[in-house]
């Protein structure tokens, strides 16, 4: 059996040029240009627990569960800018396979499916600071519909010494969040929503593992 906690934080400045869309009762669309620079920060914490079983003297299979929370903040500056705070609490199931290529080198694969089951203010929603866009608008909290995703990870671990390993892990992550509900913005006749969206995230991790204790 194994247990663990993984935390990650990523941050970036992003420039954007686009428009806000306005639609009236007749279906006529108008646009208001928006050009912003955003500060995006994503924080993720996962608690995991699972089992690992040897299927040969060089190979293991493993299965595990995830209890996770993802928080993202988008602070858009400039004309048309406003703030958004995303909250996702989610569960996950993972399957994995590890194979020892040599005493020092191990490779493997992880497949994880994720699902955010609770539709609530702090577990599957976005808080939008519309007052930054227009002082007459109020800040609103919008709940997403069905929210799910998956990850594929290919960890390769090189054992530098008995206490230190280097890990290289290409990954692919996919999230889908269904459209939110509609909320009143307090200005009469104005309601707001966030449409369904997809996030694809891929890259690689470079990790130094340090065995800190033995029991």
């Amino acid at each position: 059996m194994f247990i663990g906690i993984d935390t990650s934080y990523q941050s970036s400045n992003i420039s954007y040029k686009g428009a806000n869309q306005y639609v009236d009762l007749n279906g006529d669309i108008s646009y208001e240009p928006a050009e912003t620079t955003s500060k995006l920060s994503v924080f993720n914490i996962s608690a995991k627990a699972g089992i690992k079983k040897a299927v040969s003297n060089r190979a293991d299979i493993l299965g595990y569960g995830l209890l996770s929370y993802r928080f993202a903040k988008r602070d858009m500056k400039g004309e048309g800018g406003y703030g958004e705070y995303y909250h996702w609490g989610y569960l996950g199931l993972g399957l994995g396979f590890d194979f020892c290529l040599s005493y020092k080198l191990q490779t493997g694969v992880r497949l994880e499916g994720m699902y955010a089951p609770i539709k609530s203010k702090y577990f599957r929603s976005v808080y939008v600071e519309l007052s930054k866009l227009d002082p007459d608008l109020k800040n609103i909290n919008l709940s997403f519909g069905s929210t799910d995703g998956f990850r594929v990870k290919l960890p390769t671990i090189y054992k530098i010494s008995n206490t230190i390993s280097f890990e290289f892990e290409p990954f692919y992550e996919y999230w889908h969040a269904d459209k939110t509900d509609w909320k009143d913005t307090t200005i009469e006749g104005l309601i707001a929503s966030v449409p369904s969206n997809f996030t694809r995230n891929y890259g690689f991790l470079q990790v130094l593992d340090t065995i800190s204790s033995k029991t």
């Binding site: 059996m1 194994f2 934080y9 890259g203 690689f204 991790l205 130094l208 065995i211």
Partner: peptide
């Protein structure tokens, strides 16, 4: 990404990991 993880990967050892992530 700056990542840190503390894992008890099996019953007789525990790990602390530090890492970077480059992504798109």
């Amino acid at each position: 990404l700056f990542g840190i993880s503390a894992n008890a990967k099996n019953t007789n050892s525990s790990y602390i990991s530090f890492g970077l992530m480059t992504n798109h």
